[in-house]
Computed example of a mutant assay.
Amino acid sequence: MFKALADFYKELKDCFRLFSASSAKCRKIVFYSESDIYYQYYEGIIEELLKKPDIEIAYVTSDINDSIFSGKNPRIKPFYINNLLSIAMIYFDSKAFIMTMPDLDNFHIKRSINGVHYIYAFHAIGSTHLQYRREAFDNYDAVLCVGPHQVKEIKKAEEVYGLKPKTLIECGYHRIEKIWLDHRGYAENETFSGGGRTTVMIAPTWSPDNILDSCIYKIIDALKTEPSLNVVIRPHPEYIKRFGEKVAAIRKYISDANNFSLELDMLKDENLHKADVLITDWSGIYLEYALGTCRPVLFINTPCRIDNKEYRKLEIEPMELALRPLCGSVLEPENISAVKSAIGELIENRRKYGENLNKIRGEYLFNFLNSSAAAADYILKIADGQAAE
């Protein structure tokens, strides 16, 4: 009870501070984060913006434990707003407001009564019309597009549904750039190895019928006696938040399996770089892993999560479906007993997959290694009062 009161007091104080005259400068450019893990998707853009010595940024987070409060940069002004967010959103007077949250103005999070320019930043590189609601991006003024597939999909949706055209910025995706750059360092570090063991990371989505709910115990039973394997289970952050008792049950089940571990820190990428193979279902992590490390993926063919039942109206195959066979192999849930041999086949063909994934990255991502500059340039133009093209 006392913690809840203290948290609400901090929220009230931060809310008043955010809308005070003293915060007018940083309030011109606002980034909103639902939790600590979302900074990684803004990181490159913020670093580019702060290359301008006169720029300050307001960073609004709904996570009271967000590491942003530890002081990443004095020109990033952090504010905690959670329960009051739906009220605060109405009164922002910012020039540019950047979010990774879809469905602006469709539910309780509304556009401001003032002339705020809303910019959507993706936290995944997949398609826009399969695992998002149909209206997810309709009320944004601009979208920082990862690659040509998203530009094509959004323009087609605007045509099919008669929507007002948005400004589509050809940016790219900093998260994959960072994984790619970091992975080169890991690969060159001979001490960073599994001691001759093959490392497998299991990282599913959190939607219904995911791996953890449908077949994780069968996978554990199939692999727990394999001393040549080091297996890391990495639940989705939403799964950890919503299903703590299931996570605890998995932890207990693997307690006597020496080659299994559970990773709950979503801000660490060490095991992602160590992994020789990723096992997933429909999680967007497969694209980050495959295109960032050029290593193969084993897909457990659980039911596909479809948030937009009308996705076929665009007559464009979603990226998540198109790239699956190019990034690895698919294993049906009823054939889990073959999971070890499937891992072995992917390892044997690793070079072939690596060459293909390099090509795919070039085809599907804008401005590789320079995405953040493209995004920051657009945000600065908006903040300076220049009309969107």
Rank of each mutant, 00 (worst) to 15 (best):
A4C: 11
K10R: 15
E11S: 02
F19P: 01
A24H: 09
S35H: 10
Q40C: 07
E47T: 09
K51T: 07
I57N: 04
N65I: 07
S67I: 09
P102T: 01
Q131S: 13
P148Q: 11
E159Y: 14
G162L: 03
K164S: 13
P165S: 03
K166D: 02
L168S: 06
I169L: 03
G172P: 00
H174Y: 15
I176V: 14
G185E: 10
T191W: 11
T191P: 01
G194Y: 04
N210W: 05
S214C: 08
C215D: 08
T225H: 12
P235C: 05
V247M: 09
A248F: 06
A249W: 05
I250V: 15
S255W: 08
A257I: 08
N259L: 04
S261R: 13
L264I: 12
D265Q: 07
K268L: 13
V277S: 00
V277D: 01
E288Y: 03
A290F: 05
A290R: 04
E310K: 11
K313F: 10
L314H: 00
E315P: 02
N335E: 13
S337L: 11
E345W: 06
E355M: 06
K359I: 15
K359Y: 12
L369H: 11
A373D: 10
A375W: 03
A388G: 11
